[in-house]
Design a protein around this nucleic acid. Structure first.
Lengths: 226, 226
DNA sequence: AAATCCAACTGATGTAAATCAACTCAAGGT
DNA sequence: ACCTTGAGTTGATTTACATCAGTTGGATTT
């Protein structure tokens, strides 16, 4: 990783060109929007610090959270297919982003193939993430869903060399429950269970993972772990 | 759409180059595999006729269906991010595919920017499809899930100018239930309910949609429609 | 035609999570 | 200090779906 928001193997010259594209935006306030569903697609965004929630509105008007994005992660690809964003993206906390105008990025990609290639991989990564979520939502219990989310967040923070056992959740219980297809009450109760089992120490939005392995084991078995 | 598997606005010359890449494979038998999870990524595939199921294996060894693909649709993007396919893809019936070797497609894209651009849109479309499925799995009842799947299939067949009210399901009840995060019994019962309500006529894998609007209405309300 | 098989359906029962309903607590506002 | 507000938790009850346990009917075999 470098000063840029994109980790990738390029020579200094190409890197420089890329760097000139990227606009560092002034930090977003909590709840401030990046783009809204229906807005014309213009850019993708990389999270520098803070966190982002993306969600869409169902035909029946209810909000459905489709993703959380942490430092180093990229969002906004959903706008590409139809030239308008399908999701709405807002900051969960004070958040700074890099905006990468897609038109220019695409042009740069045309002259520098490795960039193009890397871009495709980035999009494909979003597909993999989405499919993991699909598997999670289709197959698992409330406990497994929550365990999986916590492990995923922990893992992603670790990749950015941030603390992996102490997590300060930027999202509300309601947002977690919506994302996982549960209710707030269930999320609250499962956190309670995990706490009683000493898997976690929970204090409001502060979560400490005490027994990572126990959470991982939850994912592996349909069986009750007593 | 043209003789090719890819609909897109190119001049005759470019189109010809693209056409030369594409290999029409001999038809697959039902249950025959296209690629397996872990195989090195080499190509994407377009369905010419028939249908494809893609699925992954959970950490606990269970199969999770991640998508069904019908004529005109493209699959295999999930392999791009890590250079190996995450899913396994098999034919649900006798199916013919176009194989499009990615390396060559990518090279062609480097020399013909519109192709590159179109490729990105294709991938992005997969993201949109996945996110719709996420919303479906997270928020909806068994009836809504099934209604949604039937409407989606109907819609996709219609886009390819195939019958939209008479559907011959290529997949088993088990595969449907797995995809939707339900059990076979529930799928069977919901089909029964829809039949009693005269929304559908069901005969094994032959489904006729009698009341499209009723199915659409199911999606719009949390309320019981009595 | 009897025997086997398997997908699909149906019925009875169990249960995880939703729903409904308080209650707690911290953060602002007046 | 008091009132409001909203997020979070906890408890009681309900319910939608899963699970368990057959039954049915078509296809394949013998």
């Amino acid at each position: 990783m470098n000063r840029l928001c994109l980790p990738l193997g390029l020579d200094a010259n190409d890197l420089n060109k890329l760097e000139q594209l990227i606009e560092r935006k002034k930090p977003l306030q909590p709840r401030e929007g990046v783009f809204s569903s229906g807005d014309p697609f213009s850019s993708i965004y990389a999270v520098r610090s803070g966190s982002i929630k993306s969600f869409c509105i169902d035909p029946d008007g209810r909000e459905q959270v489709t993703g959380f994005y942490f430092p180093g992660e990229i969002f906004g690809w959903d706008g590409l297919a139809n030239n308008q964003y399908q999701n709405t993206a807002i900051a969960l906390e004070t958040t700074s982003l890099c905006e990468i105008p897609y038109e220019q990025l695409d042009e740069l990609g045309n002259s520098i193939p490795p960039i193009q290639k890397y871009l495709m991989k980035l999009i494909s990564r979003e597909i993999n993430a989405d499919q993991q979520l699909i598997a999670l939502l289709a197959a698992n219990s409330a406990q497994q869903k929550l365990a999986s989310l916590l492990l995923s967040i922990s893992d992603r923070l670790l990749q950015r060399k941030l603390s992996s056992t102490r997590i300060l959740l930027p999202m509300s219980r309601g947002e977690i429950s919506n994302y996982l297809g549960l209710t707030v009450e269930t999320v609250s109760r499962v956190l309670g269970v995990f706490q009683r089992k000493k898997y976690l120490a929970v204090n409001k939005k502060e979560i400490e993972i005490l027994d990572m392995q126990a959470l991982r084991d939850l994912m592996l078995s349909t069986e009750e772990v007593e």
